[in-house]
Amino acid sequence: MNCFPWAKDSAKKSKNNKMKYKSLDQDQPKSLLDTQKVAPAKIDMKEDAKDAEQSAVTNDLEVVEGVGGDHKEKGKSRSFKLSELIDATDDFNMENYLGEGGFGKVFKGKLKDTGELVAIKQLDSDGTQGVREFVIEMMTLSLVDHPNLVKLVGYSVEGGQKLLVYEYMSLGSLEKYLYGHKRKTLDWNTRMKIAAGAARGLEYLHDKLNPPIIYRDLKSSNLLLGEDFHPKLSDFGLAKVGPTGTNTHVSTRVMGTEGYCAPEYAMTGQLTFKSDIYSFGVFLLEILTGRKAIDSKRPSKEQNLVDWARPLLRDRKNIYHMVDPELRGQYPPKQLYKAFATALICVQEQPSTRPRVSEVAKALDHIVSQLYTPQSPPAQTTPEIPVIS
């Protein structure tokens, strides 16, 4: 989805760098797909076209598995036959429907040979949109290995179909817990645990992976929860290899979700690691306030979460009016201040004033380490919040 609802998918794409993906220096292609062009999916493709398409996707995966150093063996994914995934989902029975993922429907499945529960994303077959994102996600997840990133079990590209098979995250997306009927289950400790886990996953992409990756689609609906609310980032279809060497940014078509896009990226198409930091700040504000990034049902001055939050956070007295009412006053005031201050500095308009992801992760880990025990009645201490312009 584009950052703006009026932006059309038919916008001009930047020219691909045709250089083969041989090195990890600043001359490498900026998209994980720049080495290949994949034919669009069609249900009525001839057998030779189907074979060619499957070969192209497989070749892309092999190219990426050839880089990444230590990650190569960790991220091995399995090629499934279409029949295996049909069996796993009972022919994609709607009783197994989990929801809509990036560019396709997601179904719960059970692999017959191992008994493993999985989530299977089926790319929309009518039209070409999403094919590029499918391959990028497949290639990205074949490289990464981190406890806060969703695991890719495998893929299938048979019969004109394109499917991705992920580990099954039993509790679903964070979005459902923030805005659905399960809101009351998210106490302070759980929210901070989720935020810190997301920060560690992003830190891995930015600072630990070689080449580094800009996630570009951080939001509550892309944060999946496993047992005991263990968080994992998912949906890497918009991921982009970040700038290296002397480069400061990656020039690309503006993509993402309205309300989460950094203003400088939305205006110029210049993507940096600080673009992800802005999105993380919005995400953290969601967790703290229980408000959506964009909510057209609210009064006009409150529809954009960041625009609403920034001026309020300059007065220390406002945080208690901003915090999610579902917490019912059960939070530690000093840690609440630190969490709001972290979110605020992440959504600064100037990218240079935003922190590195390692700093964000460290701040949230510290909050998590201060385990909160609910009080009755709730504490009312008001900490001071410095003005951050």
Rank of each mutant, 00 (worst) to 15 (best):
14 S>C: 12
135 V>A: 06
34 D>H: 10
334 K>T: 14
201 G>R: 06
183 R>Y: 05
222 N>D: 11
94 M>R: 15
5 P>G: 07
264 E>A: 03
262 A>H: 02
324 D>P: 10
230 H>F: 12
187 D>Y: 08
295 D>V: 04
15 K>A: 13
329 G>D: 10
134 F>S: 01
351 P>A: 13
78 R>I: 07
245 G>M: 04
254 V>H: 07
384 E>H: 14
194 I>L: 09
346 C>I: 07
248 T>S: 11
308 W>S: 06
34 D>P: 02
158 E>R: 01
242 G>W: 01
38 V>K: 00
96 N>M: 10
219 K>L: 11
189 N>Q: 08
4 F>E: 14
152 L>D: 00
347 V>M: 07
149 L>M: 09
176 K>G: 11
109 G>M: 04
300 S>I: 11
35 T>I: 09
377 P>H: 13
56 A>S: 11
277 I>Q: 02
192 M>I: 14
289 T>H: 03
109 G>H: 01
379 A>N: 15
202 L>I: 13
264 E>T: 03
302 E>I: 03
127 G>K: 08
31 S>L: 14
216 R>F: 01
166 Y>D: 07
172 G>W: 05
177 Y>C: 12
132 R>V: 03
186 L>P: 04
90 D>C: 08
9 D>P: 01
51 D>P: 00
165 V>W: 02
355 P>K: 08
131 V>S: 05
165 V>R: 00
195 A>F: 07
7 A>Y: 01
157 V>P: 01
77 S>M: 10
50 K>E: 01
113 D>R: 14
94 M>A: 12
117 L>Q: 13
98 L>S: 10
70 D>N: 15
316 R>P: 05
146 H>K: 10
189 N>G: 10
92 F>D: 03
85 L>P: 00
14 S>L: 15
336 L>H: 06
98 L>W: 03
246 T>E: 12
284 L>E: 03
123 L>H: 03
267 M>L: 13
249 H>F: 11
175 E>D: 15
28 Q>G: 02
222 N>Q: 06
334 K>M: 14
138 M>W: 01
36 Q>V: 14
271 L>S: 05
270 Q>C: 11
285 L>R: 02
144 V>D: 03
216 R>L: 04
174 L>E: 06
270 Q>K: 15
286 E>K: 12
326 E>Y: 07
264 E>K: 03
10 S>E: 13
381 T>M: 13
32 L>K: 00
332 P>S: 09
61 L>M: 07
